[in-house]
Design a protein around this nucleic acid. Structure first.
Lengths: 203, 203
DNA sequence: CATTAAAAACCGACCGTTTGGTATGTAAAG
DNA sequence: CTTTACATACCAAACGGTCGGTTTTTAATG
């Protein structure tokens, strides 16, 4: 039905993945869509609006792992599933929902621009981000608690500390590799560190 | 001597700490300095140039911990020193070199904009960043190696893995707190996690 | 199926403002 | 009297956005 509107949205997303909100111009959006300024403003009222919709439609679901769908029987299985999902999102595509392929490069430094822009411009998004972080923390903590009572792991640290260890480790690996090479090595790096940490807790 | 020039530099820094390069306008720089456009272009040839100098003069030394000055006798002492230095930089000021006080808020989300802008715009800075990361990794690894042979710690993980654990943990804590609250809690959070990790390695 | 009127989709010229940067001038310093 | 340090008016280009008009699609009617 609304073909052009979706086309504008996905095209804008591609641009916002390459530059910050301020750096992407209306001219670029219009030219990349192949449409005209009139067409754009027929569907959207402003550059801000298309940004907002881009964030809400694509970026949020792309960023946020769904922790409720993860297996929680063991800590090892839990983090292994996250790694597998990370793989899927990397090789897969950004636009799975629209069926469009991801011919662009993988996760990179610009994703942080986009994330930060969204946080600064959209209070609702910032709240979602906060909620997601809490959910992430709660999920990890639950799994760690269970793993400890199972006898899967043991440690002098609190469950919360261990949960944070895993979470911050993944964030740290991400931002480090984004600043240097690509995200290609992130998966194996994260696997190696999580495994090492896990084995330390297991002994 | 060159009073106005330095004034422009520090004023520009303050602005670049609040917005991205693109978002900071010449008008803002000129108005905040209290000088005129003519004055600005008397000392600098472009907005890019003042950005470049801002990065080289202030930001780099602010960001980069000097690992050669840290005590390496024990792992505990090593990371404790880093935490103390982190304190100093937080409460202290951004402009220690010029003696100006830091009345602005502490490290926040905009610092990442600045960091990313610098990486994208200044290849030399990116290289310095990379070198610094390598130096950081090398320092941690050395300290961990020594700590292990000392009998201070023991672990099934390699020295490199342990080093990365500490490094990525700090990066992860930083970016997480920047996105939510401030950097106020980062220090204690990092202390808690590093301590927990350390004790696990010690047992 | 053809006719037609209304609505939706789309175009590109145009608008006021802001952008980074320049040119010209002048007052002060050496 | 020359150089340095500023100020200000000005510029072309780019900015996000508007508007009047044209084409295309849709839906109702005979």
């Amino acid at each position: 039905m609304n073909d052009s509107r979706d086309h504008i949205l996905t095209t804008s997303l591609k641009l916002f993945l390459q530059k910050s909100f301020k750096e992407v111009t209306m001219k670029e959006i219009v030219e990349h869509t192949g449409l005209s300024k009139g067409a754009f403003y027929h569907y959207f009222t402003s550059k801000e609006q298309v940004f907002m919709e881009v964030i809400n439609h694509f970026f949020r679901e792309y960023l946020h792992e769904d922790y409720s769908q993860l297996p929680t029987e063991s800590l090892a299985g839990f983090y292994q599933s996250i790694l597998v999902n990370l793989d899927r999102r990397n090789e897969g595509a950004f636009f799975t929902s629209t069926g469009e392929p991801n011919d662009e490069e993988a996760f990179n430094i610009n994703h942080y621009y986009l994330l930060f822009d969204a946080i600064r411009m959209l209070p609702a998004f910032k709240q979602k981000q906060l909620d997601h972080q809490q959910e992430e923390f709660a999920s990890w903590t639950t799994v760690v608690t269970k793993a400890r009572s199972n006898g899967e792991i043991r440690s002098a640290m609190t469950d919360e500390q261990i949960a944070k260890l895993f979470i911050y480790l993944s964030d740290g690996v991400g931002i480090n590799y984004v600043m240097t090479e690509g995200l290609s090595k992130v998966r194996q790096e994260l696997q190696s560190l999580w495994d090492g940490l896990y084995n330390t807790l297991k002994d």
